[in-house]
Design a protein around this nucleic acid. Structure first.
Lengths: 355, 355
DNA sequence: GCTCTCCATGCATTCGATTGCACAACCCAT
DNA sequence: ATGGGTTGTGCAATCGAATGCATGGAGAGC
């Protein structure tokens, strides 16, 4: 009775099998199975087709449908490093929104090498992804050029391109506000000698937070960035330790340091431990991101909370809108972060009077 | 000259376009582009085709190829919860192995509800995934039945089905050995009164670790599981806190507790803090998993390290072998964990003599 | 009772690449 | 020169679903 029994074995029927069984044409089956075209059929036929499909355990071959409709219902998510703890919540948000619309995410770890990133994106495009979410971009990123040239809808997330380049939509955190929250908090505690460990300036987060730090300091009539700022070579614990070490050597008068992200802050913890300094006793520390479990480290890290899950959700929503043709032009969504005060910040030992 | 300029715009050519340009048949283009069939063509034609493909920036439509070849080069990865920190390294490992073979991972967050898991898998199967990696399974899991009935190659990871059910391949950690390492370590430090916070027994990790705990205790002639064991309702911080609280009430004589995973251990930290007990001063704590950043919490957690990345790699390798038809029967791979001694374990305050 | 609609369904093509088979051309041996 | 073998390429079918157009039949209107 059954003529098809492929390698993958059991019960893989096609619309034709149903058509045969019900005694209608395959196209009728297709229409019956599609809620959007179902209304054109008589209730009787529709019911019989649905029953037969149910009985045979029919599962549509989405690949075949995609080929015809030119919609793969798939989006590519390109990450620089899956193991960075900010990404799981982002992915969760993306996945939740996509799956509600019957889309699916292909997650690709593309590293930070441009050639490899391009290879990864090319493979995703070959699979006909309907759009891309890029978490890898630098402030002027040729990968974005590449995607645009390929005509793929793109949303960049977490990091953006240089301000003013409204080539693609973006969802990022308000870095200026985040830094202002951090500096305000420290100033309120009585700190005047505040340092900053900046991230790589080719990333929007590195640059944006440095600028935000400067602006926030100036608002309090504190010195603009100078010797109190050090540049970390990467957003990593090790780079943070190394940068912090140099900063602490150079500026022994600092009573607080704002790190451009949590990993750098943890590196700063390491550097403090190296030289026997206490946090927050000797130096108060503020991070950025509120990544999972920084509330558990010692001391629990005061940090700027970014709602990563929401970031993922929004980016997926924007992308889907674009894919479905509803959206015109680019959207630049800037999410408002909050400060989460924990135990890594306290009043300085000898609060100084305002100058 | 160009007749196709689709919505997705720029430069999307097909094999036919190349064929036309070179003056050959599309099938010849296909053969030239496939390294495995290339040898059947004259060097001249091959070269001209490759040149034309290069010039036009040809990208193959993998969907069309998949439809014909019945290989989607895609595997589904089904997780109970992306945000669980053990998964990023697992995903990284999976992704690395897959992408080396030009496969791609679709990551799906399926929760722990059976109906929803089934829906998710059904969608993955509709997309013709070549295989599935399941991280969701319970000890007797109908989802596995479902996948097997659908004829899909399956590897279960992290958790396995009940021992003896060799229905699918699995990659897990050696829970018995892990618990033995933990108990041995504590005994060596002088502990005799050791408790265990067990995870849900419907999960292989919960049950396996409980049994491993019992075996390790007996090996030291210490009491088999009884009042010194408490059951947590989930592998979560909150469940750990709650369970630990009851355990500490019931057995104030304990000097050490082994938790079935790190999250439970962190909940135990919470419970200790609640009642003003010090770790490791009053109670030594051992976790399980060595998830990221437990070296940073206070005190740094002594735990059993599972090489999650490797777990991901192996599972992907096994699955690919199966997909490519090279493997027969099931493989049960058991990875050896290590103990990582940190500061949450120390000698008990008053080491007791052996009974 | 006859035409005119309209509606349900069938037919045939399409998406783009792969592949079994056919066949023409060429080579070598007899 | 003829036959057999090889080799390179074309042809056409195929994967499975979607869809524009055609068509047959029922029902309505006059």
């Amino acid at each position: 009775m059954r003529n098809r029994m492929h390698v993958t074995g059991a019960g893989r029927y096609t619309a034709q099998d149903i058509a045969r069984k019900v005694g209608v044409h395959p196209s009728t089956v297709s229409r019956a199975l599609n809620p959007a075209t179902r209304h054109r059929l008589s209730e009787d036929v529709t019911a019989r087709i649905l029953a037969a499909a149910e009985e045979l355990g029919y599962v549509r071959n989405d690949l075949a449908a995609s080929l015809r409709t030119r919609n793969s219902m798939t989006v590519g998510v390109v990450l620089p490093d899956i193991t960075n703890p900010v990404f799981p919540p982002i992915l969760e948000g993306i996945e939740a929104v996509l799956s509600a619309e019957r889309y699916v995410a292909i997650v690709a770890n593309a590293g930070s090498e441009e050639a490899h990133q391009r290879l990864v994106v090319e493979r995703l495009l070959a699979r006909q992804v309907d759009g891309l979410i890029l978490a890898t971009v630098t402030r002027r990123d040729s990968l974005v050029d590449f995607c645009l040239k390929a005509g793929a809808p793109v949303v960049v997330i977490n990091r953006s391109e240089a301000a003013g380049d409204h080539r693609v939509s973006s969802v990022v955190s308000d870095d200026a506000r985040g830094m202002k929250l951090a500096v305000d908090h420290l100033v309120e505690l009585g700190h005047r000698h505040i340092g900053h460990i900046a991230g790589p300036l080719n990333l929007s987060t590195g640059k944006g937070r440095l600028e935000g730090f400067g602006a926030a300091m100036q608002a309090h009539h504190l010195p603009a960035p100078g010797a109190n700022v050090i540049l970390a070579t990467a957003f990593s614990r090790e780079a943070g330790r190394e940068a912090a070490s140099r900063l602490l050597d150079r500026r022994p008068d600092l009573t607080a340091v704002v790190a451009a992200n949590d990993l750098l802050a943890i590196g700063l913890y390491d550097a403090l431990a190296d030289r026997g300094l206490a946090c927050p006793g000797d130096i108060s520390v503020v991070g950025h991101n509120d990544m999972p479990f920084v509330d558990l480290i010692s001391p629990p890290l005061t940090t700027v909370r970014i709602r990563h899950r929401e970031m993922g959700e929004r980016s997926a929503e924007i992308l889907l809108k674009k894919v479905q043709g509803a959206a015109e032009g680019g959207v630049d969504l800037v999410l408002k972060p909050d400060l989460v005060a924990r135990a890594s910040t306290a009043q300085p030992r000898q609060p100084r009077a305002r100058p």
